[in-house]
């Protein structure tokens, strides 16, 4: 799966985590975020990653990573094994995002979930004027080959928290590399201009 990590995203995630925390990075990709959290927060960090190639890269970086599918392999971790579980731009790729969220919150005390915002104005305009499924920098696939089968908007995710009943502790939007709080009064605006939503959630 291709991920467009932005440097500010690491920084934001890192700021949400205390020093020395036990962290699981779900879908850890090539371990860039893991390294960042290790260096900046001395995190005791583990990763789970589906791609063999990416796992190899992580091993070469000296990171502890388990090859596995987060949708099925999170169940091996006992309740509250980690202080934080991070899911970076991957929720939309799961067959059952609801199960994944529940698993994240079972395995971790808190979870940090980031989502590429499908409500962004460029995506909306793309669909409105072209009439085809939007292709943008952060969503580069065609509809028929995209791993992103459950795209959602920032607003959708906020609604999702009410439907499946988890608490959003902190919600942030990334707009042109600037981070800002999302609240009830600016939700419509952030949902239009936010490229990425970052949520710190709890059971």
């Amino acid at each position: 799966m291709q991920k467009k990590f932005m440097k500010p995203e690491y920084k934001i995630i890192s700021d949400l985590i205390e020093k020395d925390a036990k962290v699981l990075d779900v879908g850890c990709d090539d371990g860039t975020l893991m390294e960042f959290l290790k260096t900046n927060k001395n995190a005791n960090i583990r990763g789970i990653e589906i791609s063999k190639e990416k796992v190899q890269i992580c091993i070469a970086k000296g990171l502890t990573v388990i090859e596995g599918n987060a949708e099925f392999d999170l169940k091996q971790f006992p309740n509250n094994s980690f202080e934080y579980v991070v899911l970076g731009q991957t929720l939309q790729a799961f067959i059952n995002p609801e199960t994944v969220i529940r698993e994240l919150l079972r395995v971790g005390n808190k979870a940090i979930v980031t989502i590429p915002n499908f409500g962004h104005w460029k995506v909306r305009l793309n669909l409105l004027f072209k009439g085809t499924m939007p292709i943008t920098n952060s969503l580069p696939h065609d509809w028929y080959n995209t791993p992103n089968i459950h795209m959602c908007t920032i607003k959708d995710f906020v609604r999702f928290s009410k439907i499946i009943n988890f608490k959003i502790f902190k919600s942030l939007a990334l707009i042109n590399e600037n981070v800002s709080d999302i609240n009830n009064s600016n939700l419509i605006f952030k949902n239009l201009f936010g490229e990425l939503g970052i949520f710190l959630i709890e059971k």
């Binding site: 091993i59 990573v65 090859e67 091996q76």
Partner: peptide, 18 residues
């Protein structure tokens, strides 16, 4: 074995080689 190790919070990495 990986699962058993994770259940006690051991430090474990795993890869299946093609």
């Amino acid at each position: 074995i990986v699962i058993a190790l994770n259940a006690v919070g051991a430090n474990v990495g795993f890869v299946e080689i093609e």
